[in-house]
Amino acid sequence: MLTIISLTFKNTFKDRIGIIILSMVLLYIIVPVFSSFSMRQLQEISITMSITINSFILLLLAIFGSIATVFRDVERKFVYTLLSHPLKRSDYFMGRFIGFAFVMLVVLISNFVLSVISIKICAAMYKSRLPLLWGNVAITFVFSYLQYLLLMAFGFLFASFATSFFIPFFATIAIFITGNASQGIYDYIFHSASKEYSELFKVIIKAIYYILPNFSSFDFTVHAAYALKISSNQLINSFVYFILYFTIVMSVALIIFNRRDLT
């Protein structure tokens, strides 16, 4: 498995998709430029933007993670020459995942460093009334990493049975969108507009809410930008959620991939 991990890690940095995505790190240059347009919110906007750019880059990595590894290996029949070694399929699959997760981690760390620099520049330009809580910014980065690991696990799940490029690509995007919307819709239906909907409808919504991933639980952007307190309860809650959801998705993916005929 270690060999597969290092293979994945090295190859991604050599790969074309990898290079394109990595070059997006340059987007950080626009953070101070764009923030300076704001009159009073330089610091807040620079934090929000840094987090958003990081999310965007990780999103691309998460979508292409499975496509650049497992899906391509199957599609281009690389699995014939990879799995004919004494290598367990699950080791191969996890190796591919972990290798890409490492790539993501490296990108995340470099994004964080760049974010710190851009936020510092912006904060120096205009003194905000809010304190700058680096801890919160770091937490936001860590949890966005978890979010995109989970999304990438979905990508691997789709790649475990996909025969066409469109399945892992669009299904992962769809999961991303629904996963982000689920909490908002749930709140709307159960709190803002509770009386307008029938009980049956609510039960269905609740079931869907439980099944869909909840990416809002990993989003601490406002806490970072507006210096809100993050309770440890919330962190633990989101972390446990990640562990459980991730294990479920990955084990299903492994079960499917293990049964698959690699024709």
């Binding site: 060999t3 293979l7 190859n11 050599k14 790969d15 290996d73 281009r76 029949k77 690389f78 014939y80 020459t81 990879l82 004919s84 070694h85 004494p86 290598l87």
Partner: peptide, 29 residues
């Protein structure tokens, strides 16, 4: 498959590797 070498038809190898890297990868596995 411990001591088995397999070569499929029109062998598809990860083409971003060099020849030497492929051999070393195979050995490592």
């Amino acid at each position: 498959r411990k001591k088995v070498g397999f070569m499929p038809e029109n062998p598809p190898y990860i083409d971003s590797l060099t020849g030497r890297e492929l051999l070393l990868f195979s050995a490592k596995m």
